[in-house]
């Protein structure tokens, strides 16, 4: 089988299987999960060890951990995906605007992004979410706030990349030829720049997804991301952290799910990047 006109390597196949598996689990969660995500089993109690009916045991208030991990796939992957899509939309639009909008627009946007990137993303998110969340969550819902905040912050990196990719394209002769022909700005963006700018950004989408995915998980783990009772992997790790003290492994399962999903995406991205990479000149002598 060929994807993007190339045969995936073994590691790429592993990545594809992992990611596809999680996507299926996430999409069909209600049909796959043995129990509803919020049903508590008082008779079993909290932090029950794995059993035949509950393969991963129960969580801190006696809910089935496996079901929660399955439902969590939907929330965690879904949020990260939406965030990345939004972040790319914002980043690409502003990035292209900086390139074609003239020197002043470019300077303002670029300096703003420079300053924003001088604040670690997590720190910036903590600062903004500390107030923003409580201001708006009653109006548009805390999940929307979370997605928008992360997307805006993350779009700074997409901005940088799309700007530099577009900058390299805009100086090429075929774009100049379009200007000499008398084409309008919009036509140049749509027909000359975008089709050439998007392919190099495919692998970046994977990397940004991984980053946002881990980022949402970290925020939830710190108690500032997805709020209970919604099942989400980062939050579940936090909720179940105390199980370790009594010898349970409850927090390790959702955490492992996060790691596995990220590895899967990274394996695919690694393969996409390696398609175009050539051995370095000196490799023959090494």
């Amino acid at each position: 089988m060929r994807i993007f006109g190339h045969k995936p390597t073994i590691t790429a196949w592993i990545g594809i299987v992992i990611v596809a598996g999680f996507l299926v689990i996430g999409i069909f969660a209600p049909w796959i999960a043995p129990y509803p995500e919020d049903r508590t089993f008082d008779d079993v109690g909290s932090y029950a060890p794995p059993s035949a009916t509950m393969w991963l045991g129960t969580d801190q208030i006696g809910r089935d951990l496996l079901s929660r991990v399955i439902y969590g796939a939907r929330t965690t992957i879904g949020i990260a995906f939406l965030t990345t899509v939004l972040s790319f939309a914002i980043g690409i639009v502003t990035g292209l605007w900086a390139v074609v909008g003239g020197k002043i627009v470019d300077q303002i946007l670029s300096r703003l992004v420079d300053v924003m990137l001088s604040i670690p993303l997590l720190i910036f998110a903590l600062i903004v979410l500390s107030l923003f969340g409580s201001l708006f969550q009653s109006v548009i819902g805390s999940l929307t706030v979370l997605i928008c905040v992360i997307a805006v912050l993350d779009s700074t990196r997409v901005f940088r990349l799309s700007r530099s990719v577009a900058m390299n394209i805009v100086v090429l002769e075929y774009v100049e030829a379009a200007r000499l022909r008398g084409e309008g700005t919009w036509w140049i963006i749509r027909r000359e720049i975008l089709p050439n700018a998007l392919p190099p950004m495919i692998s970046e989408f994977g990397l940004r997804f991984c980053f946002n995915f881990l980022f949402v998980a970290a925020l939830s783990f710190l108690g500032l991301g997805v709020q209970p009772p919604l099942a989400d992997w980062g939050g579940m790790v936090k909720e179940n952290a105390k199980a370790l003290g009594v010898g349970g492994m409850a927090p390790l399962w959702p955490a492992a799910a996060i790691a596995l999903m990220t590895i899967g995406v990274n394996l695919i991205v690694d393969w996409i990047l390696s398609i175009n990479a050539r051995p370095s000149g000196a490799s023959a002598e090494m």
Binding site: A218, F221, V237, L244, P251, L252, A256, I258, A259, T262
Partner: peptide, 9 residues
């Protein structure tokens, strides 16, 4: 690919 807390726990 590991979240920090996974490694930690």
């Amino acid at each position: 690919s590991m979240p920090e807390f996974f490694l930690g726990y």
